[in-house]
Simulated scan of single mutants.
Amino acid sequence: MITSAARTALRSAAAPLLAGVLTLGCLTAWTLAGNAGTPAEVRVTEGRILVPSNTEATAAFFTISNTGTTADELTGVTGPAGHRAMVGRDVEVAPGAHRMEMAGAIGVPARGALRMAPTDLDVMVSPPPRLAPGDRVVFTLHFRDSGAVEAEAVAVRPGRLEP
């Protein structure tokens, strides 16, 4: 025989228990329907590196696409052996005067893309490798969640960045 106190305790526990079971069922259905999200899935394409015009540095540019439903971040880059590579940002310091500064982690949006350009983000390479148009250089781009991704950049003359 169930006592009055036990009946009251069971009634008190029934609502939270039912709410928990219902929530778990809804989350399971949401996940099975494919709506729980996917990890970042980055691809690096359209690599271009400028044939150097000086002995100090040159720049490389990539398009980074993310087909996942979670954003990622570009945290660094490794260039060819014997050459330093870093992600840089073009900053206007006065009308018509620009300088490059190191960029921190760069966001790659979910279901979006990041396109590097001379007037924004690029990969600075110092000292520049000896390059002729058509030469290929391999870089490794490092991402917070996606890890290391190798990408190839084709040497082009300045002004010829379009694939």
Rank of each mutant, 00 (worst) to 15 (best):
G147R: 00
A151F: 03
R136D: 13
I49K: 13
T69W: 02
M86Q: 14
R84Q: 09
A57Y: 14
P95S: 09
A36I: 11
T23W: 06
P133F: 00
V154N: 07
A71L: 04
D145K: 12
A110N: 03
G37Q: 08
G147M: 07
N54W: 05
T63N: 08
G25P: 08
A57F: 12
T67G: 13
F61V: 03
G37A: 00
T31E: 01
D90L: 08
T140R: 13
G25D: 08
P129H: 05
S126T: 15
D145M: 01
A132W: 07
A36S: 15
A117F: 01
A103M: 07
G88E: 04
S126E: 12
H142G: 05
T23C: 07
R99E: 04
G34K: 03
T119G: 12
A103S: 15
S65R: 11
L17F: 14
A57W: 10
A148V: 07
F139L: 11
V93G: 02
R144N: 04
L74S: 06
M102S: 13
T78I: 14
G88A: 11
V154W: 00
P133D: 00
P39W: 11
N54G: 12
T28Y: 11
L141P: 08
T45I: 13
G76W: 01
V108R: 07
G34I: 08
E41V: 15
D72G: 10
I64G: 02
F62E: 02
G104I: 03
E56M: 10
A151E: 06
L24G: 15
L18K: 07
D122F: 11
T70Y: 06
S146P: 12
T28W: 14
T58E: 03
A36M: 09
T78V: 15
A71F: 05
T67I: 07
E101P: 04
R144F: 03
A71G: 08
T69M: 03
I106Y: 04
V91S: 10
E150R: 15
